[in-house]
């Protein structure tokens, strides 16, 4: 029991990220509303960012900016932060394109839910 608790406490960061990912993925797949789908996509991506950032952490570490000379410190791993800066931009870009598409779909069909869209597409 203690071991399980230990394992949980030392890994809960990943668990949280994964639960968020699952929530996001579920919304992405199951939601009918296209905008909600995109929100799901965003949650999914953000959860991945969280996952990256959390494994960058080092116990007792500080932000990876050098302290003045002579002061020793533990810095957290800087690389995941860099990667996630890039990934955030990608996520934003995809969201922008997705939303533009939804705008266009709404203009063409007058609906933004999947079932309604399916009907409209079939009718044409």
């Amino acid at each position: 029991m203690e071991a399980v608790l230990e394992a949980f406490l030392s890994h809960y960061n990943y668990g949280m990220a994964i639960i968020l990912m699952m929530i996001g993925l579920y919304a992405l797949i199951a939601k009918q509303n296209l905008v909600k789908k995109l929100i799901g996509l965003n949650i999914f991506q953000t959860a991945i960012f969280l996952f990256y950032i959390s494994f960058a952490d080092v116990e007792g570490g500080i932000a990876p900016i050098y302290l003045p000379e002579g002061m020793e410190a533990i810095y957290v791993n800087p690389l995941p932060h860099v990667l996630i800066l890039t990934a955030i931009v990608v996520g934003v870009s995809v969201t922008a394109v997705g939303l533009s598409l939804i705008v266009r779909i709404y203009e063409e069909y007058g609906v933004i839910d999947e079932a309604g869209l399916l009907k409209m597409v079939k009718r044409r």
Binding site: A7, S10, H11, Y12, N13, Y14, G15, I18, S54, F55, A56, D57, V58, E59, G60, G61, P64, I74, Y75, V76, N77, P78, L79, P80
Partner: peptide
């Protein structure tokens, strides 16, 4: 979740990432 079991603990300073490239960069 299966993968989580083999991951280094949260904040582990001995994790491969921190030990290897993380340290190199710092």
């Amino acid at each position: 979740f299966w993968a989580v079991g083999d991951m280094p603990a949260f904040g582990d300073p001995q994790s491969p990432a921190t030990r290897y490239t993380g340290k190199l960069y710092v």
